[in-house]
């Protein structure tokens, strides 16, 4: 602050300081956790590190990963979105039903499904900013609304009805389940799309003014408002983009499961998307975190589910493990990011 300190020459940091800085860098902790997880499961199962299995992990990750992009944005603004899973399920039902029953062209049906999710995002955002309700309550409400609408619209049927064998859905709806081969490993287009979306989110958050405003709004909304940022607009845009992500995730889910299932997205997706975000080092207090961390967090979640299955752990214990995992991650967040202001 004083002129004396500014006159001090900047000393070269010691090796220890480099290590400290390295560990403090945003996505390093999650990355080390990822390496540990991979090391653990590769010791337990020979199949784990093989190309086809890793490709499968990524396929399982792509839906939760794209959901987690939206969840990251919301959590960065110190909110939370509990409606992710059921909103995606609704979008998925809209897509498949309109493509099959209503005779809409496949692309129109996809657009309508994505639009339905965007509408839920706008609704969440409008209630959080306009009526100033807590995000937790708003999205708990829209979780139930989307759940109900999914079952009302689908009349509890899967689309296409009574599927067995090859799906009768139009190919456009299944596009992101298609694969191409690199070496001996098949990669789905959906996984590529997921990485592209993570790249776009990274760019928007770190390289644009909008990203800065998202961080500032989550970090200190009053300060953000006083510097002239229209925080309501930032929040509304965040929830809307999150809705868009859920819509795209719905398309990915249809591509992967080859059907529209009204019972999809009810249990694991919500918690998994939040777990991915928190494991990725994003603080539930808002204002801190990276989307790259979320990508790593989503992969960790995917590896846990995949690895536990590989070593023969029953599904119900997987729930137990992910539950413990998210609480641990939140505890670490509390201890490291506890407000210093």
């Amino acid at each position: 602050m004083t002129s004396e300190t500014s006159a001090q020459p900047a000393r070269a940091p010691s090796p220890l300081e480099w290590i400290r800085r390295f560990l403090a860098a945003p996505a390093v902790g999650p990355f080390l956790a990822l390496l540990l997880t991979m090391a653990f499961f590769s010791l337990k199962s020979d199949r784990f590190l093989q190309g086809p299995n890793l490709s499968l992990v990524l396929q399982q990750v792509m839906v939760v990963g794209v959901l987690a992009i939206g969840q990251t944005l919301v959590i960065l603004t110190a909110g939370i979105d509990l409606s992710v899973g059921t909103v995606m399920a609704f979008g998925q039902i809209v897509m498949t039903k309109f493509a099959i029953d209503q005779g809409f062209s496949p692309l129109t049906a996809i657009a309508l499904g994505i639009l339905a999710c965007v509408a839920f995002g706008v609704l969440n955002g409008a209630l959080v900013t306009g009526v100033r309700l807590p995000a937790f309550i708003v999205t708990l409400g829209t979780l139930n609304i989307a759940f109900a609408l999914t079952h009302i619209v689908s009349k509890d049927l899967t689309y296409p009805p009574g599927t067995s064998g090859a799906s009768t859905l139009p190919s456009q709806l299944l596009f992101f389940g298609r694969t191409f081969t690199v070496g001996h490993t098949e990669i789905t287009y959906g996984v590529v799309l997921m990485f592209v979306l993570f790249g776009l989110a990274w760019f928007s958050l770190t390289q644009t003014a909008w990203g800065r405003h998202v961080y500032a709004t989550g970090d200190n909304p009053e300060a953000a408002r006083l510097t002239g940022i229209k925080t309501w607009r930032v929040l509304l845009s965040v929830y809307t983009v999150a809705g868009l992500m859920y819509g795209i995730a719905a398309w990915l889910l249809v591509s992967r499961t080859e059907l529209g299932d009204p019972n999809a997205g009810q249990t694991t997706e919500n918690l998994d998307s939040i777990t991915a975000v928190v494991l990725g080092g994003t603080s539930l207090f808002g204002g801190r975190g990276t989307v790259i961390g979320t990508l790593i967090g989503a992969i960790i979640v995917g590896i846990f589910r995949n690895g536990l299955t590989l070593i023969g752990v029953e599904v119900i214990y997987q729930y137990l493990v992910t539950g413990v995992l998210v609480i641990l991650a939140v505890a670490v967040d509390q201890l490291t990011h506890r407000r210093r202001l």
Binding site: R212, H213, Y215, A216, D219, N220, E222, A223, A224, L226, T227, G228, I229, G287, R288, R340, L341
Partner: peptide
């Protein structure tokens, strides 16, 4: 009235 997690330059230019 600063955004604590943003860096100094970002705070100086916040909103501008």
């Amino acid at each position: 009235a600063v955004a604590p997690s943003l860096d100094i330059a970002s705070n100086i230019f916040l909103g501008r």
